[in-house]
Amino acid sequence: MALTKEQIAQRIAKEVQDGYYVNLGIGIPTLVANFVRNDINVEFQSENGILGMGPFPFEGEEDPDLINAGKQTITALPGASFFDSATSFAMIRGQHVDLTILGAMEVTQNGDIANWKIPGKMVKGMGGAMDLVASAENIIVAMMHTNKAGASKLLKECSLPLTGVHCVKKVVTNLAVLTIENGSFKLLERAPGVSVEEIQMATEGDLIVEGTIPEMQF
């Protein structure tokens, strides 16, 4: 069975380690916060200017001066801090953030990523994504393996305008966990019940399969 969006987030949460500062993008990445083990200490950064982001507020306690990068009302945890946008991107560009998790429309076997524009159809803007992918050492992309029409989103080359080049190292999809190494996707794990052949069929880019590929553990 292909994973749900929640299960993708749950699998990615296993990559989050004690002491990490983590930036979560909009969409599936936001869900990762719900699955991080509670016996480790992690701080979430939102690029609009908070470190130590907490859960959504209780009804009636929402504050218009306290939102995340998705413009959702949030709370601040003990030890949180607020800062301006230039300082926020100093954290990001200066590689002080340990892990960046973001969504994508397309990724390639070279680590290129496209996630901000569909020419003539959808132009929302890149927000902080270009700064994040250009600077982060440790980027995980959370995405569906194929689009609604069934076409692969793991490609040899992006068809959409790029967000960054040679930057993605790990991809977690509804079908698989993959790394990007030496210009190829490398299959690490399968979603439970999904075969290597199904993953190969859904991957347009070059896919390296070495030995027996285990199923994901949650």
Binding site: D84, S85, A86, F89, W116, G127, G128, M130, D131
Partner: peptide, 14 residues
């Protein structure tokens, strides 16, 4: 419209 990265926007102000 000129769309630019958010950190670049902040730093061009700075």
């Amino acid at each position: 419209v000129e769309l630019i990265p958010q950190g670049t926007l902040a730093q061009r102000c700075r």
